[in-house]
Design a protein around this nucleic acid. Structure first.
Length: 482
RNA sequence: CGGGGUGUGGCGCAGUCCGGUAGCGCGCCUGCUUUGGGAGCAGGAGGUCCCGGGUUCGAAUCCCGGCGCCCCGACCA
């Protein structure tokens, strides 16, 4: 019985496990359209929590939200050479509308640089109009060949920030600032440790000068690009003639940045923390942080237990804890435990006649220590501190796991062995040659995730390229990736 | 698009080799008994067996032709 209801384990088949976690937690479902995903209420609730936190961070750094159209004239995409080359193969195009063939086909946005900068050209006249700091929450469509729930779907939800600045230095500062925001969000909200750094040219955004990213290591030791921040230089400004008059009276092109994170983060969340019992969700992003399960036999017990449970529910909610009372009839407590564990609820409070009599409740944590009886008095603050501790513990556990799976200063042979074996991050010297990078990818399926920022670099910097032996121009972090 | 697999109640599968009018587990509905880690019993609902054609008295099963989906690769947040 238990076996038939258990999930496939992570070690048995990570990818099957991932799909089962999503199904069991009712986060998402497959749609009638290949590659598209229905985000179910439990999954969307996590996205809403993510949105709220990120939106606050964007506003706190001076950005405003706006909304740009879904349809983009096809010609817009072609204005920036690298951009069209990068995105044209994966666009969905509307050629017929209202029963008539359109004069110019409309692309369903794969990203909004082109339409946004065409508008910026109208809105920006003077240096006084800069910086222009806008974000939009939207859906985008990329016709990918292979899709996976949350990680790569044909349509996905994201936010894309698009800014315009008066100088390259200012644009670079903005690019780095938003990478920092993403890093903070990943670590403080998702409890997902990331390394930050710059992408090589082969991995950078189509049309960007430089791309920076946050990269996280999943439990199967594959890397996930969790967010990107691009310094677009003046590439799009030139393509869309976004110019401004400087204080000296001359005309110059603006400097742009764009940055985004998507519903892919939910995939990262799942693969960072969850276990063979199902989803593990950090308290800060959980739809329900606490679920109360009442236990009773007789009608009399039912009355007093539900009474106590409802009082507790009100108290916790008043304290700002997202609490749910599971008063469903005809379902045994054990069945409820399994269900809420699969859904990733961080804390569970069980209240039965014994607890009511003792004015206490049984506290069960989704991860770590077992159940424990806690007094009703002061329970709200106890719950708060439990959640804070869990938030930190999850981040620490994930960081330790990542560090155990990281190898620094690898030789070529060690590198190959790692990539064919356990995987993980490998830090090593890189000559900077695209040919070397391509050869490594072809032979090992590993890519350079980032050229890490100072803080993440090894104490002892490599002097030669791990692959070809030529002098190293930068330390790189390699991994197989999603 | 190449390689592999697979289409049968909501989900997961058996049955296909060797044709005889569809079954199991889970889920769902009703009732009673249950409820401190996935409840038991009784009754019940639910299927054009992916589609089209052929062979046959008779096709989930055999033959021919389509289509869908999944996994591995090429593309990618």
């Amino acid at each position: 019985m238990a076996e038939s209801k258990a999930l496939t384990t992570r070690t048995a088949d990570f990818s099957a496990w991932y799909n089962e976690v999503i199904a069991r937690a009712e986060l998402a479902d497959y749609s009638p359209v290949r590659g598209c995903m229905v985000i179910r209420p439990n999954g969307y609730a996590i996205w809403e929590q993510m949105q709220q936190a990120l939106d606050r961070m964007f506003k706190d750094t001076g950005h405003q939200n706006a909304y740009f159209p879904l349809f983009i004239p096809q010609s817009f995409l072609s204005r920036e050479a690298e951009h069209v080359e990068g995105f044209a193969p994966e666009t969905a195009v509307v050629t017929i509308a209202g029963g008539k063939e359109l004069e110019e086909p409309l692309v369903v946005r794969p990203t909004s640089e082109t339409i946004i900068y065409s508008m910026y050209a109208k809105w920006i006249q003077s240096y006084r109009d800069l910086p222009l700091l806008i974000n939009q929450w939207a859906n985008v469509v990329r016709w990918e060949l292979r899709t996976r729930l949350f990680l790569r779907t044909t349509e996905f939800l994201w936010q894309e920030g698009h800014t315009a600045h008066a100088s390259e230095a200012e644009a670079e500062a903005e690019t780095r600032q938003m990478l920092g925001v993403y890093r903070r969000f990943a670590e403080e909200w998702m409890a997902m440790p990331v390394i930050t750094g710059r992408k090589t040219d082969s991995e950078k955004f189509a049309g960007a000068l430089r791309t920076y990213a946050i990269e996280a290591l999943m439990q199967d030791n594959k890397s996930l690009q969790a967010g990107t921040s691009h310094n677009l230089g003046q590439n799009f400004a030139r393509a869309f003639e976004v110019t401004y008059q400087t204080s000296e009276g001359s005309i110059d092109f603006v400097w742009n940045t764009s940055w985004g994170v998507s519903t892919r983060l939910i995939g990262g969340l799942i693969m960072t923390h969850s276990d063979d019992s199902g989803l593990v969700c950090p308290p800060k992003l959980a739809q329900w942080q606490v679920v109360i399960v009442p236990i009773f036999r007789t009608d009399e017990e039912r009355g007093s237990v539900l009474d106590a449970a409802e009082r507790l529910l009100r108290e916790l909610r008043a304290a700002g804890v997202r609490t749910h009372l599971d008063a469903r009839e005809g379902m045994k407590p054990g069945a409820k435990y399994y269900e809420w564990e699969a859904r990733g609820v961080p804390l569970r409070l069980e209240i039965g006649p014994r607890d009511v009599a003792a004015e206490s409740a049984m506290l069960a944590r989704r991860v770590g220590a077992r159940k424990e009886s806690v007094p009703m008095a002061g329970l709200a603050s106890r719950i708060q501190s439990e959640m804070e501790a869990m938030q930190i513990a999850l981040l620490e556990a994930a960081r330790e796991r990542r560090e155990r799976a990281s190898l620094r200063g690898a030789t070529r042979a060690e590198f190959i062995a790692r990539m064919e074996g356990e995987g993980g991050f490998v830090y090593a010297g890189f000559c900077g040659a695209p040919t070397c990078e391509a050869e490594i990818k072809e032979q090992t399926k590993a890519t350079i995730r980032v050229l890490p920022d100072e803080e993440f670099r090894s104490p002892k910097q490599p002097t030669t390229c791990m692959w070809c032996g030529a002098p190293s121009t930068a330390e790189a972090v390699w991994a197989r990736a999603y």
